[in-house]
C-alpha cells in the first residue's frame, strides 16, 4: 500500500501508485479512496426531501480541501449526495450529465425520475463492483416527483434500498440513532432542518473528518436546490468538553 508521500510523488510523475507493482501493469483498480468526503444525511419531510453534507475533502487524515460540494442536482427532480472518493463522485456526475444530455436531445420535456436515477446508479455501482473496479462511494438519491418524495441509497457494491431517512458512513453510527428517535412523518420544513442540523452538529463534534461548513439541499415541488454552505451553531462549554475528566475516569468520553 502506498504511503502519502509515495502517492504524492507518483501523482506528480504519473507513475503507478501501488508499491510492488510495475508500471507495465495494464491498469490499476481503485482499491482505496484518495480524497474522501464523510457522511451524507437526508430525510423525507412534509414538502419533500432534505439533505446535508459538509464540504471537507480529506486526504487521509489531512484536511485537504475545505469547499467541496458533495450534493448536486440532476434532471428536473433529483438530488444526488455522495460520501467516499471525490474523484469517483465526479465521474458519477459525468454519468448524470450524460443522462441529462440524452433527455435534452430527445427534447420531449421528460427527464428521469429520482427513482429511475437511483435504480440506474445502483446498477452502475453493482456493475463496477462486479468488475472488481468499484466506484468508492455511498450515494444518496433524493427527489420529489409527481407529488411524491423519494429517498434511496446505494453503496459501492450496489446494495440499495429506499428509506424515510438515511445517513452514510460515520452518520450510520451517530446520526441514525438521532434520526430514529426524532424523525416522524410530515415534519415541517423547520423541524426537518433542525433535525438535520442536530445530526450534522453531532457529527462535527465526534467525526474527525468533518468541518463546520455544511451544504443543505432540498427537493420539493419547486424542484431540487442546493444552498450555499453554512455553519451550524455549536456549544463547546459543556462540562464534558471543558473538563473531559471531571468526576469520572472515562478517558474523556461521556
Amino acid at each position: 500500500m502506498a504511503t502519502v508521500s509515495q502517492t504524492l510523488a507518483c501523482a506528480a510523475s504519473g507513475a503507478d501508485v501501488s508499491a510492488g507493482r510495475s508500471a507495465a501493469d495494464p491498469h490499476k483498480h481503485t482499491t482505496s479512496p484518495i480524497v474522501t468526503g464523510t457522511s451524507v444525511v437526508a430525510l423525507k419531510y412534509k414538502d419533500g426531501v432534505m439533505m446535508a453534507a459538509d464540504t471537507l475533502g480529506s486526504y487521509g487524515s489531512l484536511s485537504r480541501f475545505t469547499d467541496l460540494r458533495r450534493i448536486v442536482t440532476t434532471g428536473g427532480y433529483t438530488l444526488v449526495g455522495a460520501d467516499g472518493d471525490y474523484s469517483d463522485f465526479q465521474y458519477v456526475q459525468d454519468i448524470l450529465k450524460e443522462l441529462e444530455v440524452e433527455d435534452a436531445c430527445v427534447a420531449d420535456g421528460i427527464t428521469h425520475s429520482p427513482k429511475e436515477i437511483w435504480c440506474c446508479m445502483a446498477r452502475i455501482l453493482y456493475h463496477r463492483r462486479s468488475k472488481m473496479n468499484p466506484l468508492w462511494n455511498n450515494l444518496v438519491i433524493a427527489g420529489f416527483h409527481e407529488g411524491e418524495a423519494f429517498l434511496g441509497t446505494t453503496d459501492k457494491i450496489g446494495t440499495s434500498y429506499e428509506c424515510d431517512f438515511v445517513a452514510t458512513g460515520m452518520g450510520l453510527h451517530m446520526a441514525m440513532p438521532i434520526l430514529r428517535r426524532h424523525w416522524k412523518p410530515n415534519m415541517s420544513e423547520s423541524e426537518a432542518r433542525e433535525l438535520l442540523e442536530s445530526c450534522m452538529r453531532t457529527l462535527f463534534y465526534r467525526d474527525c473528518r468533518t468541518i463546520n461548513k455544511i451544504t443543505f439541499a432540498s427537493a420539493t415541488k419547486k424542484g431540487p436546490s442546493v444552498d450555499e454552505p453554512v455553519e451550524v451553531s455549536t456549544e463547546w462549554s459543556y462540562q464534558s468538553f471543558v473538563d473531559p475528566k471531571a468526576g469520572s475516569d472515562t478517558g474523556g468520553s461521556w
Binding site: 430527445v106 420531449d108 421528460i110 428521469h112 425520475s113 427513482k115 429511475e116 435504480c119 440506474c120 446498477r123
Partner: peptide, 15 residues
Amino acid sequence: RFQFNSPIITGRLVS
C-alpha cells in the same frame, strides 16, 4: 426496465 426499473417512454421507443 433492467436499467431504470420503469416502463420505457413510448415516444422514445417508436422514435
